[in-house]
Design a protein around this nucleic acid. Structure first.
Lengths: 222, 222
DNA sequence: TAAATAATTACGGTTTCCCGTAATTATTTA
DNA sequence: TAAATAATTACGGGAAACCGTAATTATTTA
């Protein structure tokens, strides 16, 4: 089993709960807790310096603002920062976020090993996920996993996301085309942009561009 | 102090935490807990039937799905259902939601008495809020209260919201006008709708309708 | 390499949006 | 009640989006 685990979560009570139950049910020896991403990062650095690195990071995604200055603001930033130094550390996210597209992106972008939805069965699933991940497998909360596998998550390319992003920022199709040209992104003609947009509208069954942006926002893609 | 309080929250640990601390710090005698809105509603009904009604409802907003069939799905539905029967019951929401516009609407629409943001200082604020509400005042988490009072929350009328809603649903301005006519909502000419939209775009500094819808979605108005 | 296929771009017609102005109607004020 | 003001509606011109089709260019396949 994992030797040393770092738990980052801004609600002290939940943090303690996780630590306790992990200790009891999975037999992890050493568990450290942090309530701020910056603290977590410091503990991580310190552990490496002392030659006793962490095996596993369990972190939430969103952290409330506080009076303190913060460098790392979100769980994603924390993961990226830590993985940059120790790429092989296992990572499990434990969060409220339950939009399939988002979660899917965490596996793709951050290469996380497990995703557990906070909720009624959250802690149980978290324990499961720890043993699964320890055994080299990945884990996703069941409800979420089925939603993702249903494949009703239309696959968006980076290009499409960028297009939608600029659209939602109020750029015209012409301006988006200019932007693509400047940044050597192809295709970049107005005609092609229209065509892509049409495909997106068809896939999402959107009536027009406004509808499309609203829907993708609801789905958490933007 | 309140005699009998109902706490609805789907994470058992948080639920217990609230109950404990309320009991210790505010001296509320009887505290009942529920993890589902439907359960909460049943407990509420039963208490009234037995002639020992609740004084105060503390509830979260969002509840994860579960295997069970659910009638009441959100905290708002629970509040509305309970207030329909016992309009004078005090209500405090305890949730992660921290978008000013949303919170403002809870005070306006549901007529809640207190709003406490979950977070690092959440439990402390919750205790405060209980005594404040007991003394006939309202309470809002400080950070949120200042955000609301800064008045950068442009005041949207129901009309504007409906307009934006239909826009984000992909209706054309013409179709929105027809809808307004059918439902005897005035003004309903295309010209007037354009004018309203212009005002909204000006207020939100939006470049076009897409941008406007995207922004209001981000602000949690839609 | 030639042919076939796919991707990208160009273009024209139509609808909807955008924006200013003016006319009409409703409301307020003196 | 008359005048002033505000709200609503009408209208027209230009911009952007929408939609189909065709031409051009790239890529794949035989």
């Amino acid at each position: 089993m994992f030797k040393k685990v770092l738990v980052t979560e801004d609600l002290g009570s939940i943090n303690h709960g996780i630590a306790n139950i992990l200790h009891e049910r999975t037999g992890v020896k050493e568990i450290q807790q942090a309530q701020y991403c910056d603290d977590a990062y410091l503990k991580f650095r310190r552990a490496r310096r002392d030659g006793s690195h962490f095996d596993l990071l369990i972190t939430d995604l969103s952290f409330k603002e506080s009076h303190r200055e913060r460098n790392l603001v979100s769980g994603i930033q924390l993961i990226d920062a830590i993985r940059a130094i120790q790429p092989d550390i296992k990572v499990i996210i434990y969060s409220m976020e339950d939009r399939p597209a988002k979660v899917k992106s965490f596996f793709a972008e951050q290469g996380i090993d497990g995703y557990v939805c906070k909720g009624r069965y959250g802690l149980n699933e978290l324990i499961q996920s720890v043993t699964e991940v320890y055994n080299g497998r990945t884990f996703t909360s069941p409800l979420l996993a089925s939603a993702i596998s249903k494949n009703n998550v239309f696959e968006l390319k980076d290009y499409d996301l960028l297009l939608l992003k600029h659209l939602s920022d109020g750029l015209t199709q012409e301006q988006i085309g200019e932007y693509f040209k400047r940044n050597h992104i192809s295709p970049n003609s107005i005609s092609s942009i229209e065509k892509r947009l049409n495909k997106l509208k068809y896939n999402f069954k959107a009536k027009n561009a406004i509808h499309l942006v609203a829907m993708t926002k609801d789905l958490g893609l933007l």
